[in-house]
């Protein structure tokens, strides 16, 4: 069973969002997503400073059997990325909500609206079966 921490926000594309003090957010992929992908071998991250629209493909997580796009969960600007994943992409598998975070964003105004809470995300997973 995949872990779904209650304090985070989610998207139907299996990304999580953690709001931080000062209005920025941290983005990663969920435990469920990393289980589906299997051992990650490479993570391609956006450049800091890039402006992205909501649902725009902005990172790629790659396992032996698949390379999947990660979509920006909300509109905004990328303000930092997890450089540790360069050397150790497996962090996403081992700690999807912790050390395996992908990037940090400054959302555009009103950005957080439309994200799912843990219960809603849980429901999506159950529907996908």
């Amino acid at each position: 069973m995949a872990a779904i921490p209650g304090e985070l926000k989610y998207t139907k594309d299996h990304e999580w969002v953690r709001p931080e003090e000062g209005g920025s957010v941290v983005v990663g992929i969920t435990d469920h997503a990393q289980q589906q992908l299997g051992e990650l071998v490479f993570v391609e991250l956006p450049d800091a400073g890039r402006t992205v629209a909501a649902a725009e493909a902005c990172a790629v997580v790659e396992s032996v059997k698949a390379a999947s796009d990660v979509y920006a969960p909300l509109a905004g600007t990328v303000i930092g990325v997890n450089d540790a994943l360069d050397a150790e992409p497996g962090l996403v598998n081992r700690s999807p909500y912790g050390e395996g975070w992908l990037f940090r964003m400054q959302p555009a105004p009103g950005g957080l609206a439309g994200l799912l809470d843990a219960a809603a995300y849980q429901q999506i997973l159950e529907q996908e079966g």
Binding site: V41, E62, S63, V64, K65, A66, A67, D69
Partner: peptide, 12 residues
């Protein structure tokens, strides 16, 4: 590095 190839990533 096959995950980038057409038989897996198809249109991308």
């Amino acid at each position: 590095l096959q995950a980038r190839e057409q038989h897996i990533r198809r249109s991308r």
